[in-house]
C-alpha cells in the first residue's frame, strides 16, 4: 500500500490545488495595484479602503446577512420541531409529507425558483426581502430536518421516557432533555441552511425584487458588467472570517474532547 505514496500525495495535492486555485488568485489580486486583474503589478491595500465606500456592495452584503440569518433561524426552528414531531407521531398523510420534504433536496434549484416566482406572481406579492426569505426557508427546512433526524435516530429513546417518569412535562422534556441531546444535529442543520442561503444564486435570481439585491446576485451582475478589485477584497475578508470560525469551532471541539477524556 505504501508503494505509490508520493504519487498518491501528488494526486491529493493536485485536487487541492484545483479547489483552491481560483480563491488564491482572488486573494493575491486583492492586493494588486492594477484594477484589471490581469497581471500583478504592485502591492496595495487601496481596495480594502474602497470596499467600505462601495455602498451597493455593502448593502447587498447586509441583505444577504439578513436573509441568511432570518431564514436560517426560522427553518431551524420549524425543521427541528418537524423532525421530532415526525418521529414521535403518526398521522394521516405522514408518508406523503415525508416524500414532499425530499422534493427541494433533489429537484433542480431552477425548478423550485420558477415555481415560487409563479406563485408569488399569482398571489400578487411584492418581490423583495420578504419573498426572498420565504424562498430561502423553502429550500432550507428539509436539510435541517434531515440533519436533526440523523441524530434523533441514533438517540436513546428511553431518555425521554425516563424524563417523563421523573415528572418532567412535555415542554421540560423537550427543552431540558431532547434538545441538548440533538444539539449537534440542530447545529449542523443550521450551518448547512446558513451556507446554502448565503451562497444561493439560482432561487434568489428569480425571487428577489427591487431593494433586495443579495451579494451573490450583485456579484453576478458585476461579473457581467465589470468587476472591481474591492470584490476581491471582500472575498479575502470573508475567507478570513470563515477560517477563524472554523479554527475556533475546532478548538472548542478539542477542548470538549479533552474534558470528556479527563472524565
Amino acid at each position: 500500500m505504501q508503494r505509490h505514496r508520493h504519487l498518491k500525495n501528488l494526486f491529493i495535492f493536485l485536487v487541492f490545488l484545483f479547489l483552491y486555485l481560483p480563491i488564491i488568485t482572488l486573494i493575491v489580486f486583492s492586493f494588486n495595484t492594477s484594477p484589471l486583474n490581469i497581471l500583478f503589478e504592485g502591492f496595495t491595500l487601496e481596495w480594502y479602503g474602497k470596499l467600505f465606500s462601495n455602498t451597493t456592495l455593502l448593502e447587498a452584503l447586509k441583505n444577504t446577512i439578513i436573509v441568511s440569518v432570518v431564514s436560517t433561524g426560522i427553518s431551524t426552528f420549524i425543521g427541528t420541531l418537524a423532525a421530532i414531531g415526525l418521529q414521535k407521531y403518526n398521522f394521516v398523510g405522514k408518508n406523503f409529507i415525508n416524500k414532499l420534504l425530499y422534493v427541494p433536496v433533489v429537484i433542480p434549484e431552477i425548478v423550485l425558483g420558477i415555481s415560487l416566482l409563479s406563485v408569488y406572481t399569482l398571489l400578487k406579492l411584492n418581490l423583495g426581502l420578504g419573498t426572498l426569505i420565504v424562498s430561502h426557508i423553502a429550500f432550507s427546512i428539509p436539510f435541517v430536518i434531515i440533519s436533526v433526524r440523523t441524530v434523533l435516530n441514533s438517540m436513546n429513546l428511553q431518555i425521554e421516557e425516563a424524563a417523563h417518569d421523573l415528572g418532567a412535562n412535555d415542554f421540560k422534556t423537550l427543552t431540558n432533555v431532547i434538545i441538548p441531546e440533538i444539539m449537534p444535529g440542530i447545529i449542523s442543520g443550521a450551518t448547512l441552511a446558513f451556507t446554502l442561503s448565503l451562497d444561493d444564486v439560482i432561487i434568489s435570481y428569480f425571487t428577489a425584487g427591487p431593494g433586495s439585491n443579495t451579494l451573490p446576485l450583485q456579484i453576478y451582475a458585476m461579473i457581467k458588467t465589470g468587476i472591481t478589485p474591492d470584490v476581491n477584497a471582500l472575498t479575502t475578508l470573508m475567507i478570513l472570517v470563515i477560517i477563524t470560525v472554523l479554527i475556533i469551532s475546532s478548538l472548542i471541539q478539542v477542548r470538549k474532547m479533552k474534558k470528556e477524556y479527563a472524565r
Partner: peptide
C-alpha cells in the same frame, strides 16, 4: 475533508470569477 469544504463556504460566483481571471 474540512479543507475540501472551506472553498465552498465562500460565494460560488466569486469562485467562478476566479476561474475567469485564470
Amino acid at each position: 475533508i474540512t479543507l475540501v469544504m472551506v472553498p465552498f463556504l465562500t460565494n460560488s460566483l466569486i469562485r467562478t470569477y476566479g476561474w475567469i481571471v485564470l
